[in-house]
Design a binder for these strands. Sequence first.
RNA 1: GGUGCGAUGGCCGAGCGGUUAGGCAGAGGUCUGCAAAACCUCGUACAGCGGUUCGACUCCGCUUCGCACCUCCA
Length: 464
Amino acid sequence: MNLHLYNSLTRRLESFQPISPDHVGYYSCGPTVYNYAHIGNFRAYTFEDILHRTLAYAGYTVIQVMNLTDVDDKTIRGSRQSGIPLKQYTAPYIQAFFDDAKALNITPAQIYPAATDHIPEMIALVQKLFDKGLAYKSPDGSVYFSVGKHPTYGKLAHLDRDNLRVGVRMNQDEYDKESFGDFALWKGWDQNDGDVAWDAPWGKGRPGWHIECSAMSMKYLGETFDLHTGGIDNLFPHHENEIAQAEGATGKPFVKTWLHCAHLRVNGEKMSKSLGNFFTLRDLLAKGYTGREIRLVLISAHYRQPLNFTFDALAAAKTSLERLDDCLDRLETLAAGTTPAEPLPGAKLVNQFDTAIADDLNTPEALAAFWKLVREANTEATPTNAAGYLQQFHRLDRILGIVDFGRRPKETIPPEIQTLAQARQKARAEKNWAESDRIRDLLAQKGWQVRDSKDGQTLKPIHA
RNA sequence: GGUGCGAUGGCCGAGCGGUUAGGCAGAGGUCUGCAAAACCUCGUACAGCGGUUCGACUCCGCUUCGCACCUCCA
């Protein structure tokens, strides 16, 4: 597979060539565990999953690291307000994150390092920056990175330092630093931090947000690694600062390829609590939508395009997945007892699928090929090739994750329903349409839909 | 002010300098006793105005509208 990925650093589509021929080092910015992640967060994690799966599909051994930010302003605030120790406060949100990821069929990363378990590594990295003259201590006990001493600062965000200006959300007065572009590597303890503090050579405090990702990614993936992903809003300052910290300390290139996922919108608007369009995954599950439907919606747009999340789209996903399940049931019935025979059917569409995915993870195009395969299977499947079609669907599913996952379960038909169905068969054979229709209505009332075909009738449970 | 992104038929959403995206919804049809499913056909879709071109939804410019980032939001 000739995989091409859009690199935010060069702003170009590039052929992906890993540093090591057979494995890929891949870091993704994970959740800040102060609350439940929302559906927009999960768009990014789902995109990262597609990348993970694509790399595996292409034959690489993937080492994905996703951090858990379990110490920052928000986690500390939450912990203090609820009077629960920090670790205890974040634990349920970490668990919720894993549960939610599972509900979306997201392939687990290989390593999930928590920031609070890697304080020594962060201190060591800050020390290195001190040694190189890139860090300085301020009177308030914090340590800052001196952006002015790092000439390549701004290469990811393409920021011109002369044009940096104080943003509306930046309150200069809260910071005691030499130049306004400088950012905190270490935050000196203050009373709002309560008992959240670690000792460092330069004083008591806690790590800055950016240093955790630099320290943990390099610990597990080395000083230079292949891929780093996150939401587009992390591009600046977070990722820019990660680069400055890592490259400032090691003098080596940090990451070869950066990928950023665009935002999710809700009904064309930015998701926000004040607009009432703010959804967590569990909100949607509670409304009866399934992880499988949500996953399909999330992958139905290209990751670099904003995605407009609507309930209409969710309903469309539900209907199309029913069509998929019908197709799979049909294939399994046809294929019963057989094994796939070469050459496999649908090769042309599988090829289209591969080409689309290899082109910067074009999931919408890949899905188009997938649905064409559904149509082809519905039209062309026979007892001899049905097993082959099933194998092709499972192949594509290694990336999509929507075929087996959350599939309509095969329900055993209760004896009472069996009996009614047989009675209906008999009535039909006698052309007693009134009776057969009466039984059909009765079955529908009991939650079973009847479909007639040449081979007889099939029963399908009706789910509201 | 800086850096970027976007505007595609009822909805979601790809794409390409000339050839069907795909899904859902809707209309008609085939099959069927009917229904369901499946399949087939259908929508005068490319924000506006100029330009380049034999030809532009696709390239260039301008305009309008929207979105993101500019110090801790995925």
